[in-house]
């Protein structure tokens, strides 16, 4: 059943998100062609260069925002609007429902992240940038080694894992907010927004307290040395990672509890 739910979820989301990412691809290819003509280096076409740069930047940002909006709207509509009457009477468990929705949302966020990075990379890729990237890698590697104690392949894996956790907890923060919002008998969307703001403020408070605590361990802030900055990173990165994982778990179980026991369809 989980597979079937994944398929249905994929079908429902890809009808918007697939064309959206295809547009990004087409624009990227067109941009690459435009760049290869050398036209934009001509002073007569400064306006065109600025215009196309602006357009591209907006498109990149819009693609990411639209991806998230579509995921969130789909989650709300399929579960807590009239469609919920069908979704919640399918012979599936709450876990299966939630996992399929979060899973597909996660995949789309990854596709979006990778597409945006690839698109930028394709456009800026040439011999000159290649050289500067090649110079950057040992530096990055060195930094990773100092902060985390491992570099190379392990470092890359760690960064990917970190990004995964960030995406997952971002998605789950939305799902739990929507679930909390639907508890209200009216203004469910407003409820979801308030829940989101509330959770955001709580987390910010905890993070600030945490940062101050970590800061006070290291030393006085006035004459901070490089080694101490490093120390702060060495503590904050793993702590924030564990914090995000714990939060994601809490979000998941609250969402599941509400969907199972506190469903409040109009």
């Amino acid at each position: 059943m989980l597979g079937k739910l994944f398929q249905a979820e994929w079908k429902a989301t890809s009808r918007w998100l697939l064309p959206l990412h295809l547009i990004l691809l087409v624009v990227t290819v067109m941009g690459k062609i435009l760049l290869s003509t050398g036209l934009l280096e001509n002073e007569a076409f400064v306006a065109l260069a600025i215009l196309s740069m602006t357009f591209y930047t907006i498109l990149i940002i819009a693609t990411s925002i639209i991806t998230f909006v579509i995921i969130v709207v789909r989650f709300y509509k399929s579960l807590f609007s009239d469609e919920g009457y069908l979704t919640f009477t399918l012979p599936v468990t709450t876990n299966q429902l939630l996992i399929s929705k979060i899973g597909v949302a996660f995949i789309w966020c990854l596709i979006n992240t990778v597409s945006v990075i690839l698109s930028v990379f394709i456009l800026v890729f040439n011999e000159k940038t290649m050289d500067s990237i090649a110079e950057l890698i040992p530096n990055l590697n060195n930094g990773l080694d100092k902060v985390l104690g491992f570099s190379g392949f392990g470092g890359v894996l760690f960064i990917i894992f970190y990004i995964f956790v960030c995406i997952l907890s971002a998605i789950l923060m939305f799902t739990v907010s929507i679930c909390i919002g639907q508890l209200m008998s009216k203004h469910k969307v407003l409820g979801a927004i308030l829940a989101y703001v509330g959770i955001y403020m709580i987390i910010q408070t905890i993070s600030t307290v945490g940062m101050v605590a970590i800061g006070s361990i290291t030393s006085n802030m006035s004459q901070i040395s490089n080694a101490e900055v490093l120390k702060v990173y060495q503590i904050t990165i793993p702590v924030s990672l564990v914090f995000s994982i714990i939060l994601s778990g809490i979000y998941y179980f609250i969402s599941k509890y509400i969907m199972k026991n506190k469903l409040n369809l109009d």
């Binding site: 469609e83 919920g84 009457y85 069908l86 012979p91 599936v92 468990t93 109009d266």
Partner: peptide, 21 residues
């Protein structure tokens, strides 16, 4: 009520629950 009952109950709610698209 759960997965087992949902398999054997066919429900027509008073709402239109079908995806418009």
């Amino acid at each position: 009520p759960g997965v087992g009952t949902k398999k054997i109950v066919s429900y027509l709610p008073e709402r239109t629950y079908l995806n418009e698209w």
